[in-house]
């Protein structure tokens, strides 16, 4: 599966269009209960645990999107966007959406 956030896949020809696909996941952020993050907050700096947590959730959302695109028979997703919204205090939804398409190698000129 080719995923890009440009309108086309550079170097490929788009032949079919399957419409919007999306994947999302909702994670509780658990801020304040995480002791290490609380300690780290005194001196500032990167909160590695949260970086990993959010990275995992984004990968999960992307995996669901790709699954959906595969079911439609697409071999690429273009114009991918990420979006985050908080649904309740302490929980965030990570959403990614894009357009599922079928692309082919252009004929040699």
């Amino acid at each position: 599966m080719i995923v890009t956030n440009t309108e086309t896949v550079p170097g490929m020809h788009m032949v079919k269009h399957f419409g919007l696909v999306q994947g999302s996941t909702i994670r509780a952020k658990n801020i304040g209960r995480d002791f290490m993050a609380g300690m780290k907050n005194l001196v500032g700096g990167e909160l590695k645990g949260y970086t990993e947590l959010l990275q995992e959730s984004r990968d999960e959302a992307l995996r669901r999107l790709i699954e959906q695109a595969q079911e439609l028979g697409a071999n690429a997703v273009v114009n991918l966007r990420f979006s985050t919204s908080s649904v309740a205090a302490g929980a965030a939804e990570i959403l990614c959406y894009g357009t599922a398409v079928q692309v082919i190698q252009p004929p040699p000129t």
């Binding site: 890009t4 780290k40 907050n41 500032g44």
Partner: peptide
């Protein structure tokens, strides 16, 4: 830019990402 700025032929394109969570210190 959304398009590749010159006439290079492309062999492969793929989306990549990088992320970080940073907090400020107590004094700030």
């Amino acid at each position: 830019l959304r398009q590749i700025p010159n006439a290079h032929e492309v062999s492969r394109a793929s989306m990549r990402m990088g992320s970080v969570v940073i907090s400020v210190d107590y004094f700030k």
